[in-house]
Design a protein around this nucleic acid. Structure first.
Lengths: 205, 205
DNA sequence: AAACATACTGAACAGTGTTCAGTAAAACAA
DNA sequence: TTGTTTTACTGAACACTGTTCAGTATGTTT
C-alpha cells in the first residue's frame, strides 16, 4: 500500500504547511489577527480547505500550543547536567521564566489563552501541562530525598512554585507590570528580581 | 443651567444603563458573547447608540474593570480593623484570593484580559492597578517598621507577593488547574493550600 | 413659527468562524 | 481503456462581529 502511505504523508505535510503559516502570522500579528482566511491566503488555499485538516481554529492553536511545549522542554534539556536537585530546580525556574520572557506569545498560548484548553474540553486532560508538571514534581521529590522541603506535600508545593513563576510571567504577558512604571521599573528587572526573591524564600523553607 | 445639568445626568444614566446590561451579559455569557448588538438589544437601543456614550467596546470593558476594582477594594475595607501589619498582609492575600475565586470573570477582566489595558494604551497608566498596588506597598512598609522583611526592597517584594497570589488565580481562571485532575485535586483546595504554603514561606523570610 | 442642536436609527462596510453543494482530478475496477 | 467511485478542493453562503455615518425625528432656543 505505497499509495495509502503517500496519502498519509501528504496529509501530514499539509497539516504542517497550515501550522507553519499559522505560526508565522500568530507570532507576527497576534492571535486575533490570525484568521483562517489569513492563513489560507498565505498558503494559496481556500479557507474551507483548512477544515479538512483541522477540526476548527482551536484545533490549530492547540497544535501550536503543543509546539510551544516542545520548544520549552527542549530548552530544559541541559538541566539534566545539573546534578544537585535543588540547583536543578532553581535552574528550571530560570529557564521557565526566560522562555516566557523571550517567547511571550507562545507562553501566553500555553498557559493563558483559552483556545488550546477549549479544544481539549471533551478530552478533559491537558496532556502537555500534565506531563510538564510531572517533571517539576519529580524534581521536588528528588529535593526531598536530599532532605529539603521536609513535611511539605509535593502536590501543593509544586502548585505553589509553579504559580509563583507563572504569576510573574502572566503579569508580564498581559501588560500588568505597567503598575510599576511610576517607579521606573521594567518587566525584565521585575521578573529577574522577583525570581531571586522567590528563590531566597524557597531556600529558607 | 438646570437643563444642561439634566442632560449631563441623563448622559450618566445612559452610560450606567449600558454598563448594567453589559455586566449582566458578561457575567452570564462571558466576554466573547458580549457583543454590542447584544447589549443594545437588552436595553432596546440600536448598536450605534452605544458609540455616543463609549468610545468603543474596550471602553465599556475598561469601565467594568474599574467596577471590579471598586468591588475588590470594598471587600478589603474590613482589613483596617486588623491592627498587626503582618496579620493584615496575610488577610489581604486571603481576600484577594477569595475575590478571584468568587468573581472569576471580574478577576479575569481586571488582571488578565487585554481589553481594559488596550483602552489605556494612550493613557499609559493603569490607574486602578497602580492605586491598588500602592495599598500593598504601604502595608509591606508597615511590616518593615515592625522589623519584618529587613533588607528587602518594597518594590520587588510587592511584585513577588502579588505575582504569587496572581499566579494561582490566573491558573484557576484559565483552567490550568486541570493539570492536577489526575491526583483528584480541585482548584479550590489547590488555591487554599497554595496560599498557606506561600504564607509559611513569607513567615520564614 | 423658524432655526438650530441633540439623540438616535438603520443600513452599510469589512471582517470573522464555519458549513456545504458542486466540481475536477485521482484512484480503482472492468 | 473505459467506466465508476473516492478524494481534494473551491466558492458561495450563513450568521455573526465592531465600527461608521447619512438621514431623521425630537427637543431646545431664538
Amino acid at each position: 500500500m505505497t499509495i495509502a502511505a503517500r496519502k498519509q504523508r501528504e496529509k501530514h505535510e499539509m497539516r504542517q504547511l497550515i501550522l507553519d503559516a499559522a505560526r508565522v502570522i500568530f507570532l507576527e500579528k497576534g492571535f486575533d489577527q490570525t484568521s483562517l482566511r489569513n492563513i489560507a491566503e498565505a498558503i494559496d488555499y481556500s479557507a474551507g480547505t483548512i477544515y479538512l485538516y483541522f477540526k476548527d481554529k482551536n484545533d490549530i492553536f492547540h497544535s501550536l500550543h503543543e509546539e510551544g511545549f516542545r520548544i520549552m522542554l527542549q530548552k530544559m534539556q541541559p538541566l539534566q547536567f545539573v546534578t544537585e536537585p535543588f540547583e536543578r530546580l532553581k535552574a528550571m525556574g530560570r529557564v521557565y521564566m526566560q522562555f516566557a520572557y523571550e517567547n511571550k506569545d507562545f507562553y501566553d498560548l500555553m498557559f493563558i489563552m483559552s483556545a488550546p484548553i477549549d479544544h481539549e474540553k471533551d478530552h478533559e486532560k491537558w496532556e502537555m501541562g500534565h506531563s510538564t508538571l510531572n517533571q517539576l514534581k519529580t524534581l521536588i521529590r528528588e529535593c526531598q530525598q536530599q532532605g529539603r522541603f521536609k513535611g511539605y506535600d509535593v502536590e501543593f508545593l509544586s502548585f505553589s512554585i509553579w504559580s509563583s513563576m507563572h504569576g510573574m510571567c502572566a503579569l508580564y504577558c498581559r501588560e500588568r507590570c505597567q503598575a510599576y512604571h511610576d517607579v521606573n521599573l521594567e518587566a525584565e528587572e521585575l521578573m529577574k528580581k522577583g525570581y531571586e526573591y522567590y528563590v531566597s524564600m524557597l531556600e529558607k523553607l
